[in-house]
């Protein structure tokens, strides 16, 4: 795995060349690049025609990444029509859309190994017809939106984590994971910039915004630890070069988020670490409600197409 150090939020380029066949390396996250951008439908086609098939381990890994992004998209989508400014309706909506796009790609790929009788499961089978304990999201992604500062705190942690993760995953020995990451990392770079700017603004704005920003970070920080925990699956996949071993990106995460917090005059919250468990299907109390809402209509009409 690539371990070169990254620069902070001031550098908007990823400094990574996309691996061959992973789509247009010059594609912009904000510009449509028809014909080049990797779409979940392309992955679905490759999975269906047997062009690609993830191993059981890779599928489980893709499920984790996909569930993180899906649950976060579901959370962020709630802000659309409720944000503090119209510009933020657009911005948070964009981040939600990006996350949903990543989720669709990862889940579609995971589904290639999760069906029965050689049939793939679709992204929708996985999103709408799995039960709570079958989800693999980490607790951080499930945390409630809270106020705008809490949402920004969650996004700040997520985008620095995902950026370091995807940046390295572009070098994965698994070509599909690498291709998904190559598209995602460009988008997450913008998320990093967005949340950084808001951390600085809220910390340096008014007394109230500073108090809320500190509180938001305090609410989210117990769930940071889970993101960087290794387990047997990750160790196995790390050895083959397919996955990024989470503990390996902790230092960069701490350094880069630390720089922003220092600039904002904030401290890393001194809070106890929660044990997590999402990767084994042990979730926060929130996930059940998220799924109940997300799945209700699809489950009323099993087998229907939309």
């Amino acid at each position: 795995m690539n371990s070169e150090t990254t620069t902070g939020h001031g550098d908007i380029s990823t400094g990574m060349a996309a691996p061959a066949g992973s789509g247009d390396s010059n594609a912009s996250a904000t510009r449509i690049t028809p014909g080049n951008a990797l779409r979940p439908e392309d992955i679905a086609l490759e999975v269906r025609t047997g062009l690609v098939k993830p191993s059981a381990d890779v599928a489980e890994y893709a499920l984790r990444l996909g569930d993180d992004a899906l649950i976060l998209a579901q959370r962020l989508g709630h802000w659309i029509s409720r944000a503090p400014e119209l510009e933020e309706d657009v911005a948070l909506g964009n981040i939600a859309l990006d996350q949903l796009g990543h989720a669709r790609s990862f889940l579609t790929y995971a589904g290639g190994a999760l069906g029965e009788n050689g049939e793939a499961k679709s992204e929708d089978d996985l999103a709408y017809f799995r039960r709570e304990h079958e989800f693999r999201s980490a607790h951080l992604f499930e945390q409630p939106n809270g106020d705008f500062a809490a949402t920004i705190a969650r996004q700040f942690v997520v985008s620095y984590y995902q950026f370091e993760l995807y940046r390295r995953l572009t070098q994965s020995t698994d070509a599909t994971l690498a291709a998904i990451a190559a598209k995602a990392v460009k988008e997450v770079d913008y998320h990093r910039d967005h949340s950084t700017q808001w951390v600085l603004r809220l910390a340096g704005g008014t007394e109230e915004s500073r108090r809320r920003m500190i509180h938001g970070l305090k609410m989210m920080w117990p769930y940071v630890g889970e993101l960087f925990e290794d387990d047997a699956l990750l160790t196995r996949l790390g050895e083959t070069g397919a996955a990024v071993v989470p503990s390996s990106i902790r230092d960069d995460f701490d350094r880069l988020t630390g720089e922003v917090l220092t600039e904002a005059g904030l401290e890393v919250p001194d809070v106890p670490v929660a044990p997590g468990g999402g990767r084994q299907g042990k979730h926060s109390e929130y996930l059940g409600y998220i799924l109940a809402e997300m799945q209700v209509l699809a489950r009323e009409h099993p087998g229907a197409s939309w």
């Binding site: 989508g77 859309l97 949903l100 989720a103 669709r104 997300m294």
Partner: peptide, 17 residues
Amino acid sequence: SRAPSLKRKAILMAKVQ
């Protein structure tokens, strides 16, 4: 939040945006 497929959810989000 209740869109019945992920594709429809993405389209709807983009539309409201």
